[in-house]
Structure formats: C-alpha cells, structure tokens
C-alpha cells in the first residue's frame, strides 16, 4: 500500500512508477508551464564539501540559466537556497531563503507554483515536501540522491550531475512547445 519508490532507472510521477525518461519530460513540462518555476538547492550542494558537490552546484546553475532562457515573458524562474535546517526565529526572509520548518512561507511569498528540491537531506526534504503539499498547491519535484521521495509529486532518484544536465536538456527541447499558465493559483501556486 502507499507509494512505492522507484527502482534505479525509474522515477515516479504522482505515485506511479515511470521510466526516468518520461519523468524528465514531465518535470521540464511542469517547469515551463509554471509562472514561478523554482530550484531549491540544499546544504549538500550549496556547500562545497567535495568536488562532486561543487560539480552539482555548477549543474544546478546551468539548469537555472536554461530555465531563464527557455521561459516566456511573464514567467520568473527563481533559485532560492536552503543553507541549513535551523529553525530560524523570529522568521526567515522568504525572499532570499527557504527553511524546512516553514517552507510554505517562501512558496507563498514568491508565489511559487513549481519547485524542485536538490541537495537536501532526505528527512528534511520529506518534512518540507509534506508542508508544501499540505499548505500550498505548488507542484513539487525531488531530485533525490538516494531512493526518491514519496512526498514529492515527481521524484527522481540517484541524482547526479548527468541527470541534472539531462533535465536541462529536456527543458531546452520543450522550449516553446508548452503553454505557460497565465495566472498563479491560490496560495501562490
């Protein structure tokens, strides 16, 4: 019962296991449809722990730049960091960061309607994804370095530099073929 996580080479879309290739198309489509498609890089890529992390950061920047090139006027891609998991009080600045303990604030403030988590430790990603799912209508994508996330609407597994680049290629490929949503939905999605 519940959602099965994908096996290597697969992904899930709304809980249905699909070949990874299909997930790239769907994720790219969701990004290109969104008014504010947003990437949320987490501490595993924001901090240059090792060479691999730094390379992933470069790939994420490439994906963001690709999104900016491929969207249409009126769409505003964003790149907002989750530098750590501290519950910051009295509040975070939702314009410049996202916090796993109240990610909905950043989603609402920036009217984000499609987001992708990458480089966030699984338990914190699960917490954030649940809160976003419960409190907003933002489409959630997880580029997970482990086995994937059942709380995301679309989840990849075994994230790598190649997979991020593949997603950027898919966005490029679909450029101009996807009609963007004209308005943001309730609660910024």
């Amino acid at each position: 019962m519940g959602i099965c996580l994908p096996n290597p080479g697969e992904a899930h879309i709304n809980g249905v296991i699909v070949p990874e290739e299909k997930a790239y198309e769907e994720a790219a489509k969701q990004f290109l449809m969104a008014k504010v498609p947003t990437l949320f890089p987490g501490p595993l890529v924001l901090w240059a722990w090792n060479e691999k992390a730094a390379k992933k950061a470069t790939a994420i920047r490439h994906l963001y730049n690709t999104l900016k090139e491929c969207v249409q006027p009126g769409q505003t891609p964003m790149l907002i960091p989750m530098p750590d998991y501290r519950p910051k009080y009295p509040k975070i600045n939702p314009e410049v960061e996202i916090n796993p303990n109240h990610p909905n604030l950043t989603i609402w403030h920036n009217k984000i309607d499609c987001c992708m988590f990458i480089g966030v430790h699984c338990h914190q990603a699960n917490l954030s994804l649940k809160i976003i799912r419960g409190g907003t209508s933002c489409y959630t994508i997880a580029m997970c370095a482990q086995a994937g996330h059942e709380d995301a609407m679309l989840s990849f597994r075994d994230a790598s530099v190649e997979k991020i680049m593949k997603l950027a290629d898919a966005v490029k490929r679909l450029k101009g073929s996807v009609k963007p949503r004209l308005t943001s939905a309730k609660h910024g999605a």
């Binding site: 890529v45 924001l46 240059a48 992933k56 950061a57 470069t58 994420i60 907002i80 960091p81």
Partner: peptide, 9 residues
C-alpha cells in the same frame, strides 16, 4: 560552492 555563492544569504 562557487556557482551558488551569490544566492547564499
């Protein structure tokens, strides 16, 4: 990470 330095608070 150098490529994401500018977005860090």
């Amino acid at each position: 990470s150098e490529d994401l330095y500018d977005i860090m608070p």
